[in-house]
Amino acid sequence: MTHHETEAETVYGIMAEFEHEEDVLEAAEAAYARGYRAMDAFSPHPVEGLAEAIGFHKNRVALVVLLGGLTGGLSGFFMQWYTAAVEYPFDVGGRPYFSWPAFIPITFEMTVLFAAISGVVGLILLNGLPRPYHPAFNAANFATASTDGFFLCIQSDDPMFEAEAVQAFLTEFEPKSLSVVPL
């Protein structure tokens, strides 16, 4: 097992490059069926079903957005009620201090503002960005992952990871190229 451990210390994973998205989808599904779990796929545009193929089903950003929106709306309404009806009650044209119809537009805007900001912040944080350096960039031809290359990487931290076996497994799918990605 010492062989495996040293590998895990120096190797990030084995990266296979494919020409078509159907190929990477097929390889990813097969790898998941084979039992690999620590893996990632890379594509220049979202590929339908690819995240599900590597075992990623539910993302929580929608929840983050919902919570952000609720926070924004409630705090917006509370702010207006508190400042206009409690902190500084002020008669304007005989309108009630608690003029709820007039508070609706700002409540709405605050809901949208907070929802949008929490969505983007949530996206960046949950994705672990910013991360300008990443081992995946060490892979051969990886620059094409943002043009027309599709990649599948089985990572060395997978309990089943064994370099030769993974290489042999990925070769079955006739990748365009195969490279060992150093850490």
């Binding site: 690819l50 950003v61 300008p132 990443h134 992952a145």
Partner: peptide
């Protein structure tokens, strides 16, 4: 680019957020 690398999981969240932003 924040180190964007086109990971499938990232795209998954990305599309959700992009659609939600459009919805908002």
């Amino acid at each position: 680019a924040l180190g964007w690398r086109g990971s499938a999981m990232h795209w998954h969240r990305y599309r959700t957020v992009y659609m939600l932003l459009a919805g908002l």
